[in-house]
Amino acid sequence: MNSAMFIQHLLNSLTLGSLYALIAIGYTMVYGILRLINFAHSEIFMLGAYFVFWGVTLFSLPWPLAMLLSVVFTAGLGILVDRVAYRPLRDAPRISALISAIGVSFFLQNVAIVFFQAIPRAVYRPAWLENPIILGEVRLLPLTLFVPALSLLLMLGLVYVVYRTKTGLGMRAISKDIETSYLMGVPVNRIIAITFGIGSALAAASGIMWALRYPQLQPIMGGIPGFKAFIAAVFGGIGSIQGAVIGGLVLGFIEIMTVAFFPDLAGYRDAFAFILLIAILLYKPTGLLGARQEDKV
């Protein structure tokens, strides 16, 4: 393997990793606040991608507008899911909300099958994303640079919201102690809704870029990336945004490099992520940057 190819793989893993990271942020934010694995998140990712191509092909919207609308719609959908399926279960045992989340995930996936049909659809890319950039021996799709750059921008925006605004303060307060936050006058339900909105918007952004990068749409496309992003979130330490980003990048790197260096193992690539997950859960359940959770008696 020469250095040009290595750089190519490195950039590819950066792209894949930042896509995972964007999804992982949604998982980690919701888990940090509600201790809920939001199974429906991967379906939000899928719908974000579908909405754009719907907008472009059906309503002939220009690309940037379709993307913006899709992100807004998906954020609204995330908030709706929380309102309908999770909020009534705040005081229920945690597993009830988890079962509800599994139900929502199946529901959205099958609604997508009803509306968009189960067959995979090809995505045509806008021309400005097609012409490769040539740097010496390295040939790059513009997307390979575009995706990490946009992801970085979104993540910086998120960090600003979480650490520099009042809403962010509320999020951090709720994740420390939801009851006390409530008593201190934090508008808990509104902040949780905003969290779902932000998480879903980022998932939609990731879904759109995913569909441009791997140009195919199908209703089950969210499952595997969603799961891997969840694993990335656990790896980085669930509840920690920085952890989710690091976890996403590491997972993307491992995946691309394993397939590049050991092509024989390509068939097992999905299994590796799960083995990684189980290993982390067993040996360091709090992940790289996660805070320790003590069991309260």
């Binding site: 199946f106 529901f107 009803v114």
Partner: peptide
């Protein structure tokens, strides 16, 4: 309508849990 069966089914699960 392909997929409708699981739509109804998953909706039923959500309703039971809620």
């Amino acid at each position: 309508i392909p997929g409708m069966r699981m739509v109804i089914f998953s909706l039923a699960l959500i309703c039971i849990i809620l």
